[in-house]
Simulated assay, not measured.
Amino acid sequence: MDINNAVALVTGANRGLGRAFAQRLLERGARTVYATARRPETVDLPGAEVLPLDITDPASVQAAAKAAPDVSLLINNAGISTGTDLLTGSLDAVRRELETNMFGHLGMIRAFAPALAGNGGGAVVNILSAMSWFAGKGANAYHLTKAAAWAMTNGVRLELADQGTLVTAVHLGLADTDMAAGWPVAKISPSDLADAALDGVETGDAEVLADQWSRDVKSRLPLRPEEFDAAMADALTSLTSPSSP
């Protein structure tokens, strides 16, 4: 798929990764970029077409699909992290993360799949996380939702193959956004992440591992669970130690 002349829709485009995606799409020659947000007045990208969208509201999703029938590239970026654990945290918070990070993305794909088919197949990009693959106290609800979103991405990839729609999973460690502001570690820039994902779409990649952290985590998956957990504990300790770069 050629990003130049594509018609793209980006969720959560008012800040962070979503804004970077919308900006890079414009800079790379996309014909139309629909920049969406729950509060559309917070989107400040000249050249973008702004749409209101709450991905957890089916009526809002359907309205966006009706307003943007020419979409050929769907960027599922919007997401939340509540810092909730599974045993001691609020179940309402766990459900809210699932509704956004997995069901919200799935609802968008279901709503836009007919348009993608009618526009030549196109592509879907799901922004996931290295936490699709590892747990962490204080963020286990996020791990659950990203693991579920990874499984969902793999499933819809098979289901959309017959209509010629590419489905690309993008995994990363931390990006330099508000969500990761409290982590004093190396982070990928939002624009570099957007470029890595869009490059992957152009080359037809089903998966993009956008940084070394995500590549390292995935490389450990063949380990036995206890070995994997020990390796991740060591890696996280090294990542957050004062001597880390």
Rank of each mutant, 00 (worst) to 15 (best):
G164V: 03
S238G: 10
R15Y: 09
Q163K: 05
E227M: 09
L91V: 14
E41S: 09
K218N: 04
G120M: 08
V217K: 03
T42E: 13
A161N: 00
K187M: 10
I80K: 01
A235T: 10
Q212E: 15
W183A: 14
D70M: 11
I3G: 05
V125S: 13
R110Q: 15
Y142I: 04
V156W: 07
S241K: 02
G182H: 11
M152P: 02
V43F: 09
Y34V: 10
A230L: 11
T237H: 12
K218S: 06
W183F: 15
N154S: 11
M102G: 00
R24I: 03
F21A: 06
R215P: 01
D195W: 00
G200R: 02
E207A: 11
G136E: 14
A141D: 08
A13D: 10
V185N: 08
S60C: 09
P69L: 04
N14F: 07
G18P: 06
S214F: 06
S60P: 01
A161L: 03
K187E: 10
W150L: 15
A68G: 07
A111R: 06
T88F: 13
T84F: 06
A6S: 15
V10R: 02
E41P: 01
G120Y: 07
T145E: 11
S90Q: 05
A148T: 08
N5W: 01
A65N: 03
G104D: 12
A161W: 01
F228V: 03
D229Y: 04
L166I: 02
A22T: 06
R28F: 09
S219K: 10
D176V: 01
S244E: 02
D2A: 14
N5E: 15
G118I: 02
M152K: 01
S241H: 14
R19H: 13
R31S: 14
A78G: 10
R95P: 00
G204S: 05
D229Q: 12
I188A: 13
G173E: 10
L160C: 05
F103N: 03
A180F: 03
N5K: 13
L166S: 02
R157N: 08
D199P: 01
V33Y: 04
E27C: 00
A67E: 11
L9A: 09
V43I: 12
S219Q: 09
P222F: 03
G182R: 06
A196M: 07
L144I: 05
V185C: 09
I109H: 09
I188G: 14
E27V: 01
S129Y: 11
Q212K: 08
A139N: 13
L73Y: 06
S129T: 08
A196I: 07
G18F: 10
A30V: 01
L239N: 08
G47L: 01
A151Q: 14
D211H: 07
L239W: 11
D70L: 08
R224V: 02
A63V: 02
G79N: 02
A141H: 04
A231F: 05
A197F: 07
L174R: 12
T153W: 05
E207S: 07
H105S: 12
R15N: 04
G120C: 10
Q163W: 03
A147F: 13
P46M: 03
L239F: 08
T240F: 15
T100E: 12
R96M: 07
G155N: 12
W133N: 10
R28G: 01
